[in-house]
Simulated scan of single mutants.
Amino acid sequence: MDATILLFLIQDGITNGAIYALLGIALVLVFTVTRVIFVPQGEFVAYGALTLAMLDTGKVPGTVGLLLVFGVCAFLSQLWNGWRDIDLARLGRDAAFNLLLPAAIAAMTFWLAPMKLPPWASVALTLVIIAPMGPYLYAIAFRPIAEASVLTLFIVSIGVHLAMTGLGLVFFGAEGFRARPLTDVTVPAGPLVFTGQTLSVYAVTLVSMLALSFFFHKPLFGKALRATAVNRLGARLVGISASLSGSIAFGLAAILGALSGALIAPIATVFYDSGFIIGLKGFIAAIIGSLASYPLTALAAIGVGLVESFASFHASYLKEVIVFTLIIPVLIWLSFAHGHTDEED
C-alpha cells in the first residue's frame, strides 16, 4: 500500500464515519431520553434516501403515504389511550398534529414533486416528510409502554424495525434508487479529489453537531431534553413532560436519519432494507460511547468508518464481519468496568 492509497482509504473512512456519527448520536439521544435502543434508526436512513431519489425523478415518494398512515395510527393510539379522560383542547391539538399536518405535507409534496426541485430543496422537502414520523412512531409503539423495562422496549423496537422494513417494501418496492449529487463541485488537494458530495457530508455533519449542541444548551426545549436524559424521575418532578421529551427525541432521530439518507443516496444505490446495516454501524459507535457520550460516539463513528475502509481494501469479503467484531471487546470491557446494575424502578 502506497501513500496515495492510504490517503484515499482515510478519506473514504472519514466520509463514512461522519454519516455513522449522525446515526450514533441519534441512537444515544433516543436511549438517554426514553431508554429505547432504537433499532429502526436505519429505516429512517432508507426512507430519507429513497424519498430524495424519487423526488429527483419528479415522482411523489411512497413516504407520503406512510406519513399519512403513521399520522392516523398515532391519532387513534392517543385517542384509545386517553378515552377515559377526553380533553377537547388536547384532542384538537392531537388532530392538528397527527391528521392536519401530514395532510398538509402530502398536499405540498403533490404540488412540488413534479417540479423536480433543486437538490437542496429536495433535501429540505425530504426532511419535512420524514421528521413527523419520529413522534408518530413514538406515540404508536413506545409512549403506551414508556415505563416498561429496557428489554421490553428493545423487543418492541425490533418488532417496529421489522414492520418498517416491510412497509418500505410495500411503499417503495424492491428496486434500488440513487439520487443526483447535491453539487458537482470538485476540490483537488494533492493526490486527493474532494467531490462536492464528500464536502457536503463533512459540512452537514459539522453543522448538525453544532446545531444539536446549541439546541441542548440554549432553548428551553433543549434544556428540558437534556434534563430528562440526565435524570428522568427528577425531570418529571419539576414538571418536564416525559412524553413531550420522547416525542422531541424521536423527531430529532428521524431528522438525523433522513439527513444521513440524503447524504448517502448520491453515493450508493439504496434499497428498502439498506438502512439496517448502515444503522448497525452507527449502533456500534453508540455502544463504544456507552450509549451516553456524544463526543465519544462521534469519535468512535470515525473509527468505525476507518476500520470499514481498510477492511474493504484488505479483505472486502470480511468487511462487515470485521466491523461488527469491534463491538465484542467493547462489551466485554463494559461488563467488567461497570458490573451488574439493577434497572431503574
Rank of each mutant, 00 (worst) to 15 (best):
L220W: 14
L220G: 06
L220Y: 13
L220D: 09
G222P: 09
K223T: 15
K223P: 10
A224T: 13
L225N: 07
R226D: 09
R226K: 15
A227F: 04
A227S: 14
T228W: 02
T228G: 10
T228N: 13
N231R: 04
R232Y: 06
R232C: 01
R232W: 05
R232A: 11
L233W: 03
L233F: 08
L233V: 14
G234P: 02
A235E: 09
A235S: 11
A235M: 08
R236P: 00
L237Q: 05
L237N: 04
L237T: 07
L237D: 00
L237M: 05
V238E: 00
G239V: 06
G239I: 04
I240R: 10
I240C: 07
I240Y: 04
A242N: 00
S243C: 02
L244R: 11
L244S: 11
S245R: 06
G246T: 01
G246S: 01
G246R: 02
S247C: 02
S247Q: 06
S247V: 00
I248F: 04
I248Y: 02
A249Y: 00
A249S: 10
A249L: 08
F250D: 03
F250N: 04
G251H: 05
G251A: 13
G251K: 06
L252N: 08
L252D: 05
A253R: 10
A254I: 11
A254R: 07
I255A: 12
I255G: 12
L256I: 14
G257M: 14
G257D: 15
A258Q: 11
A258S: 14
L259I: 13
L259Y: 13
G261Q: 10
A262N: 12
A262L: 14
L263I: 11
L263W: 02
L263P: 10
L263E: 03
I264E: 11
I264F: 15
I264R: 05
I264D: 08
P266N: 07
P266W: 08
I267R: 03
I267D: 05
A268S: 09
A268R: 14
A268D: 01
T269A: 12
T269L: 13
V270P: 01
V270N: 06
V270A: 05
F271P: 00
F271M: 03
Y272C: 01
Y272E: 01
D273S: 11
S274Q: 07
S274P: 08
F276M: 03
F276S: 05
I277N: 11
I277S: 12
I277Q: 11
G279R: 03
G279M: 10
G279F: 08
L280I: 08
K281Y: 09
G282P: 09
G282L: 12
G282Y: 07
F283G: 00
F283K: 05
F283L: 06
A285G: 07
A285T: 07
A286N: 11
A286I: 10
I288Y: 11
I288M: 15
G289K: 07
G289H: 08
G289C: 06
S290P: 10
A292N: 13
S293C: 07
S293L: 07
S293F: 02
Y294I: 15
P295W: 00
L296I: 13
L296E: 04
T297M: 03
T297C: 06
A298W: 04
A298Y: 03
A298S: 05
A298L: 08
